[in-house]
């Protein structure tokens, strides 16, 4: 018997055992898979309160970060101006969440840093999903020598601990926020590639794919019009988890001081700066941003769980 990681619920990549159906923490109830994608998603939220709360919370955070600054004006870009404000000030009427070591208003800074965390996380997830899906679909569909070669490349990529690869790429390129999107995507396209390749292997034996083939449909058309649309459930579910992972990756880089260049910031960089003052008991520099950050990650995970239950996706590695 060969030890086959595919027999285990997927563990490292799609995150953890927590993300496998057996271990689902949400209760989606009896959700059929007969309607369209949107209708199914609508039903998830009608039946699964936790998913609905997560979605509402995420929408709130997005509004908070992107609309908030236009209602609550704070200086987040001018470091000299910020120094005229009190530094490490405790929460007060003027500064609801206090100020940080540079005099930046923390409530405003959570919005400002959140913009970068959310944009980078979201776009990195989109880029890595698109690259992974196209790569996986082509590898699975072409078969013969292309498939094993393509999958060995994925194996090699996955054996490099993600954070090390990320740090190596960041050291070589010193990225701006927009380059960070590509760098994070360069680390996270591997798992979707593997998932979609597995999905393609099973889809390409279906009658309707065979029928298009028999009618002389081009391969790119089969992949684009039949294989990828039919894997949309897997793609959507996995993309949700990838947003969470990308935000975490960016935060880890920020925490190590390798994130977006100052005076830009993200939630990880904020946590990293906060720890410098932790010894002085400035809890407001850690807790508020930490709580928002963790809740966003938890909400994205619940959302992914619920979508997976609803779309009956098994995120197995193959």
């Amino acid at each position: 018997m060969e030890i086959d990681p595919t027999e285990l619920p997927n563990l490292v990549d799609a995150g953890s055992p927590l993300r496998t159906p057996e271990f689902a923490t949400t209760d989606a109830g009896e959700v059929g898979n007969d309607g369209g994608l949107l209708r199914n998603m609508g039903r998830v939220f009608a039946q699964n309160k936790l998913a609905l709360i997560s979605l509402v919370f995420l929408i709130f955070v997005v509004l908070f970060c992107f609309v908030g600054p236009s209602l609550y004006h704070t200086n987040q870009t001018n470091a000299e101006l910020a120094l005229s404000a009190p530094q490490n000030a405790a929460p007060s009427h003027q500064y609801p969440l206090g100020t940080d070591g540079n005099g930046f208003n923390i409530l405003g800074r959570i919005m400002y840093g959140g913009q970068i965390s959310l944009i980078v996380g979201f776009l990195a997830a989109i880029v890595s999903t698109v690259v992974g899906v196209v790569y996986g679909a082509f590898a699975g569909f072409f078969g013969s020598w292309v498939d094993p070669l393509a999958m060995r490349i994925v194996d090699i990529g996955l054996s490099i601990p993600g954070l090390f690869l990320l740090i190596a790429l960041v050291t070589i390129w010193r990225p701006s926020a927009s380059l960070l999107i590509l760098v994070i995507a360069a680390v996270s396209w591997l798992v979707p590639a593997r998932l979609i390749r597995a999905e393609t292997l099973s889809l390409k034996t279906r009658d309707y794919v065979q029928a298009v083939k028999a009618m002389g449909g081009r391969r790119s058309r089969i992949i684009g019009r039949h294989i990828i649309p039919n894997s949309i459930g897997t793609i959507v579910v996995f993309a949700t988890f990838t947003v969470a992972d990308s935000i975490l990756f960016l935060a880890a880089l920020g925490f190590l001081g390798l994130g977006v260049p100052a005076p830009q910031t993200d939630w990880g960089t904020m946590l990293s700066n906060g720890v410098n003052y932790a010894a002085d008991g400035y809890w407001w520099e850690i807790w508020p941003v930490g709580i928002v950050f963790v809740l966003v990650i938890v909400a994205l995970n619940y959302l992914g769980d619920a979508l997976r239950d609803a779309l009956e996706v098994r995120l197995q590695r193959h």
Binding site: L248, G268, G274, A278, I286, G290, V294, I297, N301
Partner: peptide, 27 residues
């Protein structure tokens, strides 16, 4: 246990570490 573990799993290690340093070692 399920609830606590789910939260711990979602918490990035640096945040857990900061909180532990803040309370267990500084306080």
């Amino acid at each position: 246990a399920t609830g606590v573990l789910f939260f711990l799993y979602a918490m990035p290690d640096f945040f857990i570490g900061e909180v532990l340093i803040l309370y267990l070692s500084f306080d």
